[in-house]
Design a protein around this nucleic acid. Structure first.
Length: 182
DNA sequence: CCCTGATTCGC
DNA sequence: GCGAATCAGG
């Protein structure tokens, strides 16, 4: 499939409208998103609403075998930006310090510690981590959940909007208006 | 792991 | 010119 003029025209239009390369590829058909991107570049209309383009890095790979630099490949120390740890939340709570729930002893009467914590046990930290008194909540959790129900609520506070309109109306997502949903 | 665009390079 | 492979990032 060659890039006929009408196809290039459509590509240009869709790209200008902000559709992603893969979306355009599906729209056009017979082409991959790589083909689309490649064409976009060749047409010289890359970087649409791209505010920043400070990076000029690419792949060396099968390049100049001569003086081939070892390529340090510095790992970007980007922060993971996790969902917030209990410590952070407790710290953020500062003075008010809401006491969620105390630790719950296990069947043997002991508290869950770093040594005894297992799956399905709430891993909400209780106490000073440097203290021997440090323990975990230890309540039962749902599969794959790090915390019990109560602590999960504290850990993942998505700024509860009261009277949240749970509009789960699943109208067929328009192929064009489809926006990311992960 | 899903996705995004960017770049390179063999064809 | 083309686009798969690859990279880099979200």
């Amino acid at each position: 499939m060659a890039w006929t003029e009408d196809r290039v025209e459509k590509l240009t239009k869709l790209w200008a409208e902000g559709l992603s390369a893969s979306q355009i590829a599906k729209e056009l058909g017979e082409v991959t998103r790589n083909a689309v991107i490649g064409k976009v570049h060749r047409l010289g209309l890359s970087g649409r609403a791209k505010p920043s383009r400070p990076k000029q890095k690419a792949a060396p790979k099968t390049a100049t075998a001569t003086t081939a630099a070892p390529a340090p490949k510095a790992r970007t120390p980007r922060a993971p930006s996790a969902p917030r740890t209990p410590q952070q939340i407790v710290a953020a709570a500062a003075v008010p310090a809401p006491p969620p729930l105390e630790a719950k002893p296990m069947s043997n009467g002991e508290f869950a510690t770093i040594m005894t914590i297992t799956d399905h046990m709430c891993k909400w930290p209780i106490g000073d981590p440097t203290s021997s008194e440090f323990r975990f909540c230890g309540r039962k959790t749902d599969p794959d959940e790090p915390y019990c129900v109560a602590h999960s609520r504290v850990a993942y506070q998505p700024s509860r909007r009261r009277g949240a309109s749970s509009n789960t109306k699943a109208l067929g997502p328009s192929p064009t208006s489809r926006k990311r949903l992960r």
